[in-house]
């Protein structure tokens, strides 16, 4: 009888890794995206990170970690040399082949699939479970949700479900985060050539969540090169200009704003210069939304 029990334990113990979930957080994590790096640090796994991309610059500690290349071209060799227990990557920015190649080399990967703000808390919860830190992930996700709820029509959109996307009629039901006149907003990602935030981007999500209307929402791709003519025709009331890394956006945008000088946003000086917090789908997205809310609400 004793032997049977021992044999059963041995079988179960041997099969455990096949369950696919580490019992405790992986000791050596490589992150292939700045957003996942930030989330990992927020989950308290900062010390377990052994490799990040050259664009991972937040928090400060991330800058000191060994670099493994860029987001769209990470160096697999560098990744392998770091002997990671887990490689965290995203569907939004990393090459799809990386996952197969890493699996072929028997390196465990976790793919972070959230692309929209609505999907973020749930994705964090799932990652927390897979990485063995479910309580911290739950706390982080809750924190993000409550911050979002405070500012926007978050509840009505449904927590973390994909149905949260594009539910204009439902926004009518909530007064929170709802601007009085549903004003028109343009989020400029880069002024020259004019690239704006279209449907499916975090900025578009944020604008809609705050109860405003993104004039570029009918565009066909997420970050389209937009027609200046169309901007003038749509006359946005508020323009938000995102930050390019290391650039003085005021100087760079002067030209395009001059060409748009007839739209209400420019005439009334309703142009705000944002940080890049909305560019990464991580914990700082909350600051991004706060910043955007500050910008939109104070100028509408």
């Amino acid at each position: 009888m004793k032997y049977y029990i021992i044999i059963i334990f041995l079988i179960v113990g041997a099969g455990y890794p096949a369950f696919g979930e580490p019992a405790s957080p992986p000791k050596r994590i490589v992150s292939l995206a700045p957003s996942t790096t930030e989330i990992l640090f927020a989950l308290g796994l900062g010390d377990n990170i052994v490799g990040v991309t050259s664009f991972c610059d937040y928090p400060q500690a991330a800058k000191e970690k060994p670099k493994i290349g860029g987001m769209s071209n990470p160096s697999l060799e560098s990744v392998i040399l770091l002997k990671p227990d887990l490689v965290v990557m995203t569907t939004d920015g990393n090459p799809k082949e990386s996952k197969e190649r890493l699996s072929a080399l028997k390196i465990a990967t976790y793919v972070f699939t959230a692309r929209r703000i609505a999907e973020l808390p749930q994705a964090i919860r799932e990652m927390g479970v897979s990485l063995g830190v479910p309580e911290r992930a739950e706390a982080l996700a809750r924190g993000i949700e409550s911050a979002l709820r405070k500012r926007t029509a978050w509840d009505i959109m449904g927590r973390g479900s994909n149905s949260a996307i594009r539910k204009e009629p439902v926004l009518e039901e909530s007064n929170r985060g709802r601007s009085e006149t549903h004003k028109k907003v343009l989020f400029i990602v880069w002024p020259d050539p004019l690239i704006v935030a279209g449907p499916g981007s975090a900025m578009d999500d944020a604008i809609t969540l705050l109860g405003y209307e993104n004039i570029a929402k009918e565009a066909k791709i997420t970050y389209p090169k937009y027609s200046l003519e169309e901007v003038i025709r749509q006359s946005p009331d508020i323009i938000a200009i995102g930050k390019g890394s290391g650039m003085d956006m005021r100087a760079v945008s002067r030209g395009i704003l001059q060409r748009m000088s007839s739209v209400p946003a420019v005439k009334n000086g309703a142009v705000c210069y944002m940080s890049d917090s909305l560019y990464r789908l991580g914990p700082r997205i909350v600051y991004g939304i706060e910043e955007l809310a500050e910008c939109l609400n104070s100028r509408s």
Binding site: G70, P193, L194, I195, S227, S245
Partner: peptide
């Protein structure tokens, strides 16, 4: 271009492919 960010590369590429949108 390979050393730049994706964003920078896209902007440079859009210009190189022919960009008349900034004509003034």
């Amino acid at each position: 271009m390979s050393l730049s960010t994706d964003e920078g590369m896209r902007r440079a590429t859009l210009w190189i492919f022919g960009d008349l949108s900034m004509s003034d």
